[in-house]
Amino acid sequence: MASVTSKLYSDDVSLLVLLLDTNPFYWSTTSIKFSQFLSHVLAFLNAVLGLNQLNQVVVIATGYSSCDYIYDSSLTPNGHFESSGTGMPAIFSSLLKKLDEFSAKDEELCKEEDNEKRVASSLLSGSLSMALCYIQRVFRSGHLHPQPRILCLQGSPDGPEQYVAVMNSIFSAQRLMVPIDSCYIGTQNSAFLQQASYITGGVHHSPKQLDGLFQYLTTIFATDLYTRGFVQLPKPVGVDFRASCFCHKKTIDMGYICSVCLSIFCEHHKKCSTCGSVFGQSKLDEASSVANKKRKAPDS
């Protein structure tokens, strides 16, 4: 028996953690309805589960004010594909039920907040962190585990306040060698998702035609990690890794970095506005380091 399972695992078994953007502020502005979008996604999930009997799918909802697990295919017994009268496979009726509960809760949490200035970003950092915790558990479970990957289905714009947390998650995913694929359906470009996919070696794509979302999903994001070696997937776009300064939010080529807290400034300051350290003379230092360089050069 053991040999049979190990043989099955030698095929390309994948664990797909799907981060589903359910931000109501985003979905109220789009041309495509959330229900239409969902039907594309459900068909895609079905396809992934059908590709290999050991494939596993986990769905995490990324809301506006909370994140939660809404579906885990390992919890539902396999082979329960009979319809429950609604024309929907039984496994997905549980997903829809959970999703309903989740969005109701999310809405409630939303109302508690005051209505002033709303940034319509969803909590990508939270759902990424949860996905990584789940994947870490899969890694702990033993030698035979499916190959995990994360797929972000995101439409909301980036939330700048999540920058540090999102970057932390990206680096952790890089260490675990878990690729983060991203499918961005919003109007602007998402710098977070571009960086996430670039750094972790995942695929980033933003489809132009949302009517054909299912086709994009199956042709690009359903390919398992082994197959990716032979398939021509969208090439990584040139990611702009230039930083923007903390003082004017300008994108800069060259700038000054505080040696204590690594804040970025576009011009020379006397005092760091982030950590409060007072800076010594910089001109002198730079001159001396250049002098050192010159002295060192003939040696090497």
Binding site: S65, C67, L109, L123, G126, S129, E161, Q162
Partner: peptide, 25 residues
């Protein structure tokens, strides 16, 4: 979470008012 991720998934799943953390884009 403490050794590798450096994020608390719980805290990240609560919508925070802007301005708490440092910003960069």
């Amino acid at each position: 979470i403490h050794e590798s991720l450096h994020n608390c998934p719980g805290c990240e799943s609560i919508h925070r008012p802007k301005s708490v953390s440092m910003m960069e884009e």
